[in-house]
Nucleic acid binder design. Structure first.
Lengths: 164, 164
DNA sequence: GATGAAAGGACTAAACC
DNA sequence: GGTTTAGTCCTTTCATC
């Protein structure tokens, strides 16, 4: 049985917001914040986990302080799917890897120590196909909180004239 | 006082690995896993948080199950910095936003409900400058665990001949 | 850094609305 | 679906080795 967005009420939305902000708060504290008793939130969180709405909980680390001076986005052109997947698996510097539509087949986010390290990683992918590397200068937004989608919130690209 | 990577020992590495895998384990359990007493791990985690190595803890949610059928990467060309930042701030669909080097100035990761919604979001950025949108078909790796950088682990791009 | 003790708070399961 | 209660476990802080 798949979870429908409509199954998620206002309490679930608040719970998801709080846990995306701080995943280590206790169930008692979470209950206080969303105005539910502790057993009630515990049960809701358990269901959100079971339904796969919450996939897990992760510590967010500072790449810079872990010794990775450079973050980069590498776009990888068309290449044999299995070979790219295998190369990604062999490359721990790849933090995120998406197979995408368009001229580039893959978009990789990598964390490397310095330029020499960047060269070493990018070269591995250059051998397969053409690549394009962009170094991250600045992060405007990271891991934004995502709430259940509500169609009412969409602002149409071109506003319809409402004859008034 | 900034943290140096050299300050992090093998225990810190294990702690960071465990907390990136599951941020909600108790300190007692974390202690068991890394073979330290509970007060010892608690103190180490506190220091990692204070030093900014651990930036926080987040629940990872499933965009699909929250009603976002499409994930996409939008590359945004050269445009006035402040205007792009302002537009990102006004666009909750943007999950990650990086200012990068290269022809594209910005790389945005967005989560949208459907094609109509995608159109609405992309159009907002098209007004500023040229954009290029790639829809995510498949995720090969997501939020890989990142451990303290160790230069010894780097494999040089071109292996040096060691005259032997 | 480990161990042990004590107080406070959090979790679990049950009974109940 | 929700709350309350009671028992158990975890966490925190202290002291000591």
């Amino acid at each position: 049985m798949a979870t429908e967005v409509s199954d998620l009420d206002v309490y679930d939305g608040r719970i998801l917001a709080e846990l995306q902000r701080d995943a280590r708060i206790t169930m008692a504290e979470l209950g206080r914040r969303v105005h539910l008793s502790q057993p009630a939130v515990t049960e809701r969180v358990r269901k959100l986990e079971l339904n796969g709405v919450i996939k897990g909980y992760r510590a967010v680390v500072d790449y810079q302080r872990l010794g990775y001076g450079i973050r980069a986005v590498v776009r990888v052109g068309r290449a044999e799917y299995a070979r790219v997947v295998k190369l990604i698996e062999q490359t721990p510097e790849v933090v995120n890897a998406w197979n995408v539509t368009g001229e580039d087949s893959w978009i990789l986010e990598i964390a490397v120590i310095d330029v020499e390290h960047l060269d070493a990683v990018v070269t591995k992918f250059c051998i397969l196909t053409e690549t394009s590397t962009s170094i991250v200068l600045n992060v405007a937004r990271e891991h934004a909180e995502v709430l259940p989608a509500r169609r009412e919130n969409i602002k149409p690209a071109i506003k319809k004239v409402t004859g008034r």
